[in-house]
C-alpha cells in the first residue's frame, strides 16, 4: 500500500504556544488511522493542517511539510479544490441553515455541478451512505437545522461525502450520537474504507480499537506512538504512556 499522506517535521504554534511538536508519520492508502489522545494533544490541529483551515487562525504558525499524494499541500494553489479532496466531519453537528437536500448539494454546487439529475443521484447516494436516507427520504426540503442532533451529525457526514473525497477526516464524530447510530456509521466507515483513506480522531479508545487498522497516540502535541491497532491495544506497546492511556490508568 502506498502512502496517501506524508507528514514530516510538522510543528504548529498558537501565538508561541506549541500545539504540535515535530510530528512525522505517514498515512497509508485505504486505511483507517485512529488518532487518540487526551484534550490539548493536537489532534484537531492536525486535521486543520491537512485541510488547510488552520489558515483561518491568524496567530497560528506552521513548520514542516504535509504531502498529499506526494504533493506538498502548501504549494497547492487551488485551496478550495484541495479541501474538496478532503472530507471533514467536525465534532458538533452544524446543519447549514438550508434544506436537507441543499445541505448535501452545497459542495457539489460549489464545485460547479448544476445538473439536477446528477445532484439528485448524488444526494440520495450520500444520504444512504450516511445511514440517513430512510429517515429523511420524504422531507428533503425541510431545514437541515430542524433535524435531531444525531441526524444532523449524519447529515454532516453525508455532506462530507458529497464532494467524493479521497481522505475522510472525522473529528470525534460520535459525541452527539447515540450508540446504536454510532454503530451504524461505524459499519458505513468500514465499507467506505475501500474507496478512501479515513482519519478517525476519537476520544473513545474502544472505537479506535474497533475500527482502526493503525492507531496513533498523541500527548501534549507529541506523537508518542504509531503502530497497528493490535500492537497499541496489546499488553506490550512500545511506550508505557500508551499502555496507561488505552487501559484507562493514565496520569
Amino acid at each position: 500500500m502506498g502512502n496517501k499522506i506524508e507528514i514530516s517535521g510538522l510543528e504548529v504554534h498558537y501565538g508561541g504556544k506549541p500545539a504540535l511538536n515535530r510530528v512525522s508519520f505517514d498515512v497509508h492508502e485505504n486505511e483507517i488511522l485512529g488518532i487518540i489522545g487526551p484534550a490539548q494533544s493536537g489532534k484537531t490541529t492536525l486535521l486543520k493542517v491537512i485541510n488547510r483551515t488552520l489558515e483561518f487562525v491568524p496567530e497560528a504558525t506552521l513548520n514542516g511539510t504535509v504531502k498529499l499524494d506526494g504533493v506538498d499541500i502548501s504549494t497547492v494553489s487551488d485551496v478550495y479544490g484541495l479541501r474538496r479532496r478532503i472530507g471533514m466531519v467536525l465534532p458538533l453537528p452544524v446543519g447549514l441553515p438550508l434544506s436537507i437536500y441543499d445541505n448535501v448539494a452545497f459542495a457539489p454546487r460549489a464545485a460547479g455541478i448544476r445538473s439536477k439529475s446528477q445532484l439528485d443521484e448524488l444526494v440520495e447516494r450520500c444520504l444512504q451512505q450516511a445511514a440517513l436516507w430512510d429517515e429523511v427520504e420524504d422531507r428533503l426540503d425541510t431545514l437541515g437545522t430542524k433535524l435531531s442532533g444525531g441526524q444532523q451529525q449524519r447529515l454532516t457526514i453525508a455532506r462530507a461525502l458529497s464532494h467524493e473525497p479521497e481522505v475522510l477526516c472525522l473529528d470525534e464524530f460520535s459525541i452527539a450520537i447515540d450508540p446504536v447510530t454510532t454503530m451504524r456509521i461505524e459499519e458505513v466507515l468500514k465499507t467506505l474504507r475501500k474507496e478512501m483513506t479515513i482519519l478517525l480522531v476519537t476520544n473513545l479508545v474502544q472505537q479506535a480499537k474497533r475500527l482502526a487498522t493503525r492507531t496513533a497516540f498523541f500527548l501534549n502535541g507529541d506523537l508518542i506512538e504509531i503502530d497497528s491497532t493490535d500492537v497499541i491495544f496489546s499488553d506490550t506497546p512500545t511506550q508505557q504512556a500508551t499502555y496507561d492511556y488505552v487501559n484507562g490508568t493514565f496520569g
Binding site: 485541510n51 483551515t53 483561518f56 478550495y80 479544490g81 484541495l82 479541501r83 474538496r84 471533514m88 467536525l90 458538533l92 452544524v94 447549514l96 441553515p97 452545497f106 459542495a107 460549489a110 464545485a111 454532516t156 455532506r159 462530507a160 458529497s162 464532494h163
Partner: peptide, 19 residues
C-alpha cells in the same frame, strides 16, 4: 461554525458569503 462548515466543503470565500 456555519462558516467553518461551509469552508471545509471547499466553498470559496465568495461562495460562503453569498450562499
Amino acid at each position: 461554525p456555519i462558516r467553518e462548515a461551509a469552508y471545509v466543503l471547499g466553498a470559496s470565500q465568495w461562495q460562503v458569503l453569498t450562499r
